[in-house]
């Protein structure tokens, strides 16, 4: 299962930062997830709930998942458009010479700590 692997990387990262900052506990975590990333939000939440019980500082940590819209850029006409609506084909000029600008990332934004 993919989400569990990503969750374990996120937890490792957060716990490292928390320890560096002499944190007692992590209250919440905000994670930005691109619309076309490989993460399924519901699965991710389940994996997070399961995994946090096995951590030192994140036992009570609340997870805020922010979904980030995916945007594609057309190299031929310069249009930017919604990836999930139109895919690889530019809705303005029909070109397939396009690439994803945002939407595939999984970013740890911030944590609230005590």
């Amino acid at each position: 299962m993919h989400e569990l692997g990503v969750v374990s990387h996120v937890i490792k990262e957060v716990e490292t930062v928390a320890k560096e900052n002499n944190v007692q506990k992590v209250i919440s975590l905000t994670l930005e997830v691109g619309e076309v990333s490989t993460i399924v939000p519901e699965l991710f939440k389940d994996c997070f709930e399961w995994s946090k019980k096995r951590t030192e500082l994140m036992q009570e940590c609340e997870l805020n998942l922010v979904i980030l819209a995916a945007v594609t850029y057309c190299k031929d006409c310069g249009e930017t458009y919604s990836t999930t609506k139109h895919g690889k084909t530019c809705p303005k000029c029909g070109s397939k010479n396009t690439y994803l600008i945002t939407g595939s990332e999984v970013t740890i934004k911030d944590i609230q700590v005590e």
């Binding site: 990503v6 990387h9 996120v10 990262e13 957060v14 930062v17 928390a18 900052n21 944190v23 994670l31 990332e105 999984v106 970013t107 740890i108 934004k109 911030d110 944590i111 609230q112 700590v113 005590e114």
Partner: peptide, 9 residues
């Protein structure tokens, strides 16, 4: 307090 990470997973 809040700690900013802004870091890829």
């Amino acid at each position: 307090r809040t700690i900013l990470l802004e870091k890829s997973a």
